[in-house]
């Protein structure tokens, strides 16, 4: 991987972020034709509409609006919430930190469980273990997070059990266990789908690798099975897994939004849903751009990681 590749990949990430910002702005502010109607609802009076239009300067040409908005986003001046009249930036950042913790915990759990599971299934191809992982996998990828989350609340957060809270959030200052307790059910709800999905991908990657000519070479060299697995099969199967995990982060972000809503977890997802319900335009835009930036950054990182580990292609 060369510096030129790094620069090139960075350049295209910035291009994509710029396009994303345009897309978000276009959908939320240009597409409705009249953002003021959207914000105030269909039954707003003419005077209030006109007042809002001039406040938002919605009568300017759209590129003026966009440039003004983009400047705001880039300079971290994200405006004021239209509902609570508080600055958007601090609110979003506070919620974002909690969501990131939630997502990171989930991701660590997903990776540590799904990869060994997938490898295990591939090595036992056609036998009971494979069948079990496969069946659980199909069930796992087929249940939406909000259903899993709801069922988890029903099963594990009954007041009479007292094991886990049914929702909410406690800061770390309230004690490490108190803080962690609020994460356990949301993390579980987020991981089941992803574990199922990634384990299946790892399995199929591994099955393909085990069929290649170079694995045949390794076996016919007389290597022991664990040597074939550790030195030849795993490194080649893990490479595409990086991409799969990165793609699933997009799914994870979607999951975070829903799961936070179900558990009343005060993160960015819940903030966004709340803003959507209240048509709080600056809040929606800021939250969307932050989430998209997060996703674009992780796919950039995964590409760089891939290029670093991949020996086959010259990344120029």
């Amino acid at each position: 991987m060369s510096a030129a590749y790094l620069l090139k990949r960075l350049g295209s990430a910035i291009l994509i972020l710029w396009l994303v910002s345009f897309l978000v702005f276009f959908i939320t502010q240009i597409l409705p034709g009249n953002a003021a109607v959207m914000i105030l609802g269909e039954f707003a009076t003419k005077e209030t509409l006109l007042a809002l239009e001039s406040e938002l300067r919605l009568n300017d040409p759209w590129w003026h609006q966009y440039l003004r908005w983009l400047r705001g986003i880039v300079t971290l001046d994200w405006g004021v919430s239209m509902r609570d009249h508080v600055p958007v930036m601090p609110a979003v950042m506070l919620a974002f930190g909690r969501s990131m913790t939630l997502a990171a915990l989930s991701l660590v759990l997903v990776v540590t469980i799904s990869i060994p599971l997938g490898v295990f299934a591939a090595l036992n191809r056609g036998r009971c273990g494979d069948f079990a992982v496969g069946t659980l996998g199909y069930i796992g990828v087929s249940i939406p997070e909000f259903v899993i989350a709801t069922l988890l609340i029903v099963a594990l957060a009954r007041p009479e059990l007292g094991w886990f809270p049914a929702g909410g959030y406690e800061p770390v200052q309230a004690g490490l266990w108190q803080w962690l307790r609020h994460f356990i059910l949301p993390v579980l709800a987020l991981t089941i789908v992803l574990i199922a999905h990634i384990a299946r991908q790892v399995r199929s990657e591994m099955v393909d690798v085990l069929r290649t000519d170079y694995i045949r070479t390794a076996v016919l060299k007389g290597l022991k099975p664990w040597q074939v697995l550790l030195h030849h099969a795993l490194p080649n199967a893990m490479l595409p897994t990086i991409t799969v995990v990165a793609l699933d982060i997009g799914y994870l972000i979607g999951g975070v939004i829903v799961v936070e809503e179900v558990f009343a977890f005060p993160g960015l997802g819940r903030l966004l849903i709340f803003a959507v319900q209240n048509r709080d335009l600056p809040m929606i835009q800021a939250a969307a751009v932050v989430l998209a930036t997060l996703y674009a950054t992780t796919s950039l990182l995964s590409d760089l990681l891939y290029a670093y580990f991949d020996r086959r292609i010259v990344y120029a």
Binding site: S12, I16, L17, L19, V20, F22, L23, V24, I27, T28, L31, P32, M38, G250, Y251, I253, G254, G255, I257, V258, L272, I273, V276, R279, I284, A288, L291, A292, Y295, A296, S299
Partner: peptide, 18 residues
């Protein structure tokens, strides 16, 4: 690529907001 950088759920939320 730009659209793919926006998770599907977020994208549909934005559209339905509008």
């Amino acid at each position: 690529d730009a659209k793919m950088a926006i998770p599907n759920l977020l994208f549909t939320l934005l559209i339905l907001t509008v």
